[in-house]
């Protein structure tokens, strides 16, 4: 099965009466998997993403290693732990298409969402599945290359079990991020230009999400704020687990944010959909 751009034409079974959530999830797995395969098949695009991810991770981890020194620590992390932190945090964020939010916004304002409304599954569900599929496909490549690079620079992952948890957490973080971007992009239902919103969002993930720095670096009140924001689920949670610290509680927090953000995305899309129907798409 090969689908054209952004999974718009992924064939989905006709509507069945009484779709259970489990059934919906199983149906969504198909377009998501297709999107993953397509991202991995696009060699040129994949190489560019990997190179860029490596570049950013190498620079940031070098900064943190230099800051910690060979035997010291920064906010409780050793140089090796900080290296794994940087690679995990960057992988979580770099895997997501830089123009995702703009694309969602364009789709919404151009009315192609209206076309997708004709599908038997909820628009927002198909979108989230496809976009997560793409990001997760790329994530596989980044994790493989990134783990190798981090290992070379700082030795093996600090803790094997935490490492496995970090993998799950990375996947969760990516889906949370995709869902959150759909919520933010829904601003396009009202605004014509989502770019400004996007820059604000991106920089917030940089700092409050823990992409550029472990949240422990932040001073008291700011740290508390960051820990109570959904952004921490996007980069900080998997990165902290990758350092061998933190607990499975982080996964629970991520799952919680996932539920909240998917619900929020569904809500704003449903509202936007009604508007489109009224205005006529």
């Amino acid at each position: 099965m090969s689908a054209p751009a952004r999974g718009a034409a992924v064939p989905v079974a006709p509507p069945a009466p009484g779709l259970t959530p489990l059934l919906v999830l199983r149906r969504l797995a198909v377009p998501a998997a297709t999107a993953s395969r397509r991202v991995l098949a696009d060699r040129g695009g994949l190489v560019t993403s990997v190179v860029f991810f490596l570049l950013v991770s190498v620079v940031l981890s070098a900064l943190w290693r230099a800051a910690a020194g060979p035997s010291g620590t920064v906010v409780g992390y050793t140089a090796a732990e900080l290296t794994w932190y940087a690679f995990a945090a960057e992988a979580a964020v770099c895997t997501i298409d830089l123009r995702l939010i703009e694309r969602i916004g364009e789709d919404i304002s151009s009315g192609s969402v209206a076309v997708e409304m004709l599908r038997p599954l909820p628009v927002v569900a198909v979108r989230l599945a496809v976009e997560s599929g793409r990001a997760l496909g790329r994530l596989v490549a980044l994790v493989v290359v990134g783990s190798g690079a981090a290992w070379l620079l700082a030795g093996p992952p600090p803790d094997a079990l935490h490492g496995l948890l970090a993998l799950v957490s990375l996947a969760l973080g990516v889906v949370v991020n995709v869902a959150a971007q759909h919520v933010v992009a829904s601003a396009a239902f009202r605004l014509r230009d989502v770019r400004a919103t996007w820059f604000l969002y991106q920089k917030t993930v940089f700092i409050l999400g823990g992409m550029l720095l472990p949240l422990e670096v932040l001073p008291g009140a700011l740290r508390t704020l960051a820990l109570w924001c959904p952004f921490m689920a996007m980069a900080y949670a998997p990165a902290r687990l990758a350092t061998g610290q933190g607990t499975a509680l982080l996964l629970l927090v991520q799952a919680g944010w996932l539920v909240v953000l998917v619900a929020a995305a569904a809500f704003v899309f449903a509202r936007g959909q009604r508007r489109l129907e009224v205005v006529g798409g």
């Binding site: 800051a67 906010v75 670096v217």
Partner: peptide, 11 residues
């Protein structure tokens, strides 16, 4: 700038 301020706050 914010990043560097936070960074040098610790280091």
């Amino acid at each position: 700038i914010a990043f560097w301020i936070l960074f040098f706050h610790q280091v």
